[in-house]
Design a protein around this nucleic acid. Sequence first.
DNA 1: ATACAAGATGACGTTACGTCAGTTTCAATC
DNA 2: GATTGAAACTGACGTAACGTCATCTTGTAT
Lengths: 249, 249
Amino acid sequence: MISIKEVTKQTGITVRTLRYYDQIGLLHPAGKTEGGHRLYGKKELAKLQEIQFLKTLGFSLQEIKNMLFDHQWDWVSCLQNQLTYIQKEKDKLEEIESTIKGLMNSLTMDGDINLIDMQKLIELYKRNMDQRMEFRNQLFNEDEKELLDLLPNVNSGDPDTLEWVSLLGQLKQHMSKGAQAPEVQRIIRRIHEKQKETFGDNDAFLKKLWEVRKSPEKSQKVGFYPIESDVLEFMEIASEIFLNRKQHD
Amino acid sequence: MISIKEVTKQTGITVRTLRYYDQIGLLHPAGKTEGGHRLYGKKELAKLQEIQFLKTLGFSLQEIKNMLFDHQWDWVSCLQNQLTYIQKEKDKLEEIESTIKGLMNSLTMDGDINLIDMQKLIELYKRNMDQRMEFRNQLFNEDEKELLDLLPNVNSGDPDTLEWVSLLGQLKQHMSKGAQAPEVQRIIRRIHEKQKETFGDNDAFLKKLWEVRKSPEKSQKVGFYPIESDVLEFMEIASEIFLNRKQHD
DNA sequence: ATACAAGATGACGTTACGTCAGTTTCAATC
DNA sequence: GATTGAAACTGACGTAACGTCATCTTGTAT
């Protein structure tokens, strides 16, 4: 049993924070002295570490409380949600970044600038942004969205999906070696194996799938990880070689 | 002069927000009616647009207030600061992202996970790199350490790592079908291929590696993501079958 | 004159604590 | 046992940018 001050020494967590965690029921001390001073044990220290870690993942204290309290907690989907949330926040920041960079480019022309100039620039930028948004809305209709929803999602941590992602990623890495390279051909063979295991011989579906894949904008918008067109072309070439050789055997 | 409702119609900014901006002195209405109802003019609408835009750049209302009031405002260095700030925030999110991805890679192994498992994983993650490096130094020599770096790093989302994770995850899924099942044998073949591609024919190293793998404690200390022992045993059995058949051909 | 929409003000809630202020307890020393 | 200084306690207010009531007043059409 150690005092609250000792806890802050060992963990760096402030006294105020510990009292707050006690208050909201996230972490109660193991006990109290007669006079009401908080006392913590090893179990509490371990829990504190967990709380700290989960906080670094961007969870709120309320969420953490639920996690640590509920022994049936669904960690997988919880992490999935958090990942997509974090990625969305990152996307927002990236857009801000590019907007600021654009503004700064405009500013570089005249080193000195006043409010009026800035107002003009801002108006100009607002217009461009609006236009971009309209473009996006025009690009996708309802049918397409339904189709895309049927496809596997990159963030679904399931092993099958993961291997798809990894195989295509490796393909890109080895592109410079040419379509006949043995590593490439081995990857292609694995791709064909998996296609059959997953979809059987449903060629129509496969065709649709790769067609959607070939449109970078569509893929991106749905949260699909993008496959560049050159990788897709490379895969088609390597596939032909693979199928030819197979027939030859 | 238009009413506050009309402003919300035209800009989408809520009544509450407009009143708040009035309150903090960011944007006062052009005038008021006898009864005290706010009235806005064109200048105010323009200013609202500017406020909206600057908000999208991530500035606080206080900062925006300063900008719009100070005609000598130094936009250039202000934007530079904001840019570096945004980039730092993005870096933070990226670190969170990679941590979550790493955790999910570990989770892929066992589809179902409870609080205790999670606590172990968290402890594993809390351990810092130095400790891992020390332990690695004890177990492996210089050449082997280079090879170690080729091994999947749990935190990365790179394709090679993903395939290791996915292959082992699939292996677990198919365990019930027995070691001779064709799917299993195909996965094993792919594992052997990848081993050769990554480490060449350095059999001594491979032996050591799997030994470490088989000891949960050692694996943890080196920072490997955990593989359950039954999956490892299954893999060994399936591997033997695979190698026997290969010799037979 | 009446009714109803629109507007005003004021207050509390939100997150995860930081920062006082005022009071009480602990542990060591005299 | 008394004193004393450090440590701990509770309680309250502040933060950013509003959302969401509740209650009261004004504007306007009929």
